[in-house]
Simulated scan of single mutants.
Amino acid sequence: MTVPDGFEVRVVADRAGLDACFAVRRDVFVTEQGVPPELEYDSYDADDTVTVHVLASDADGALGTGRLLLPAAGPGRGVDEPGVGSLGRLAVAKAARGRGVGAALVRAIEDTAREHGLTAVDLHAQTHALGFYERLGYVAYGPGFPDAGIPHRAMRRPVGDAAR
């Protein structure tokens, strides 16, 4: 999917794309936010049977990334309800912020969720990003909680055909 600002968002289908996703996540989460690498990367990253990675890029390289965990990932991953996927690891490179990259990544993940027959997407938002997700139609629920020492809230948005 190419968006008006001249970047492309695609589902990652090769090792180079996955490495680009990991590089953005390293820069944003590990370097900027101080998340320990052992918490940032997990076994789902390499399991393409339960994880779909998306990458935003332009002619200069990677701009942002995110992933969708499918319900097959199992309980405890925010995907223990049939038909509900989990959006996570959404990261936009500092130089690319303000261009609509994050919103385009979220919409691409929602499209992917629909393609997999899912009816909703959950996520764990850093509390400073609640407004961003609310503008995209997500609703917070439940109490706040820490993840990697950063305050978060659970959010959900229906994405089935009726939600379009």
Rank of each mutant, 00 (worst) to 15 (best):
L68P: 03
A13P: 06
A13K: 14
D147R: 09
P143G: 15
A62Y: 00
D5N: 15
D111Q: 02
A20Q: 07
H128C: 11
R26P: 09
A56P: 00
G102P: 00
E38I: 06
E115W: 01
V92H: 09
A91R: 03
G74N: 09
A73W: 01
P146C: 05
L118V: 01
C21F: 06
E40V: 07
M1C: 07
T49W: 07
D48P: 08
R26S: 15
H128I: 12
M155E: 05
L68G: 03
A46I: 13
L136P: 01
T51S: 15
F29K: 08
V121M: 06
D147L: 11
A93Y: 01
A96Y: 03
G100K: 01
R157W: 01
A140H: 08
D161A: 15
A148V: 09
G76M: 02
Y44Q: 06
V11T: 14
S86N: 15
F145G: 11
V28K: 04
L136R: 01
G64W: 02
L55A: 09
S86K: 15
L123F: 11
P75I: 12
G76F: 03
Y141H: 14
T112G: 05
T119P: 02
D147C: 08
R10V: 09
E32K: 04
A72H: 12
G6D: 05
E115R: 08
V12W: 04
P4Y: 08
F132L: 09
E38M: 04
D111H: 00
D42W: 02
E110S: 10
V106A: 07
